[in-house]
């Protein structure tokens, strides 16, 4: 296996612990930020930014995308792209309705 060009990446324990530590730090950070009581769009932006950083860490290092075939990373990004398409096109309707739910 060792001489094969498809050698699997083995992360060091230190790497993994570092990433885990960073994730826990970010979790605490996001709770702290939410307690600051930032004004409306800012708090959402802050929370989501931290969430995306965490997601990046998990996907890159725990899931190994950093070393893996780029196609697998593309699948993940592609899934997110289609999710955003779904949301944004749906919002084209729901945000621009004259009366969101007329009967209510």
């Amino acid at each position: 296996m060792s001489e094969h060009n498809h050698e699997h990446h083995i992360s060091t324990a230190k790497q993994l612990w570092l990433v885990g530590g960073a994730l826990i730090f970010l979790t605490i950070l996001t709770v702290v930020v939410s307690n600051l009581g930032l004004p409306s769009p800012l708090d959402i932006i802050a929370a989501l930014t931290i969430a995306f950083v965490k997601a990046y860490l998990v996907a890159s290092f725990f899931m190994g995308l950093y070393w893996d075939s780029k196609f697998n990373a593309m699948l993940l990004v592609g899934a997110l792209v289609f999710f955003f398409l779904m949301v944004s096109v749906t919002l084209l309707d729901t945000l621009y309705r004259v009366d969101a739910v007329p009967s209510f």
Partner: peptide, 10 residues
Amino acid sequence: SGQSSVATTV
């Protein structure tokens, strides 16, 4: 169905 006219046009 009553979706917004923006959406229908797009």
